[in-house]
């Protein structure tokens, strides 16, 4: 059978290492070897994004990365997000998810939050549509995404009400140009 391999992975700023089977998935390394249970497994087809973590700062689905592939690299999970934030305060994304009720059962949340952090790193000034498309790799069954989108907009420093209104108005202008908000009162 397979020989074991030694991995050294920095997890949330701390060095970890273990002799592992090469087939060990990164998500199981994080959950079972390191003991950080926030990262969840929601599917087996790289579809749901519940297992999303940051690998060297970029979002990845840790069910589709081998632990050996992350050797000598750096992983951030939900538990480590506070350490990215100055002064150990809750991360702005974490604060926004709470303020906007961007979570219900919480299962998709760790992955969703990290996907959102990665999204804003790449698109610091997103529109509602950018956020929706940028989160296409993360499934949530509880929230209908409405408040998740608001949370991410809010974490980007935008007013979610204004952004959603802008999106609605641009839809309205497209759907019913003669009757869109701008002209309806005229």
């Amino acid at each position: 059978m397979s020989t074991r391999a030694k991995v050294e992975i920095t997890v949330n700023g701390r060095p970890t290492s273990a002799d592992v089977e090469p087939r060990l998935l990164l998500v199981h390394y994080l959950r079972d070897t390191v003991g950080l249970k926030a990262t969840n497994i929601g599917c087996d087809t790289t579809s749901c994004g519940a297992c999303t973590v940051l690998l060297d700062g970029e979002s990845v689905k840790s069910c589709t990365v081998l632990a050996v592939q992350a050797d000598q690299q750096s992983v951030t999970t939900l538990e480590g997000l506070a350490e990215l934030s100055p002064g150990g305060e809750p991360h702005p994304m974490v604060r926004a998810f709470r303020a906007e009720h961007g979570l219900q059962c919480g299962f998709c949340t760790p992955g969703m939050v990290l996907a959102a952090v990665s999204l804003l790193a790449e698109h610091p000034d997103p529109t509602e549509r950018d956020v929706r498309e940028g989160l296409e790799g993360n499934l949530c069954r509880c929230t209908g995404y409405h408040n998740i989108v608001r949370a991410v907009l809010s974490a980007a420093g935008k007013d979610p009400d204004a952004e959603q209104r802008r999106e609605a108005e641009s839809d309205a202008a497209r759907i019913a140009p003669a009757f869109s908000t701008g002209e309806a009162g005229a």
């Binding site: 249970k37 939900l78 538990e79 709470r98």
Partner: peptide, 22 residues
């Protein structure tokens, strides 16, 4: 009122059955 559940859910994660270390 924002949820009292959330601080744990958003920092350590909730504890689901498969997470149990009981």
């Amino acid at each position: 009122v924002v949820r009292t559940e959330d601080p744990v859910f958003l920092t350590r994660g909730a504890t689901y059955t498969d997470d149990l270390t009981d």
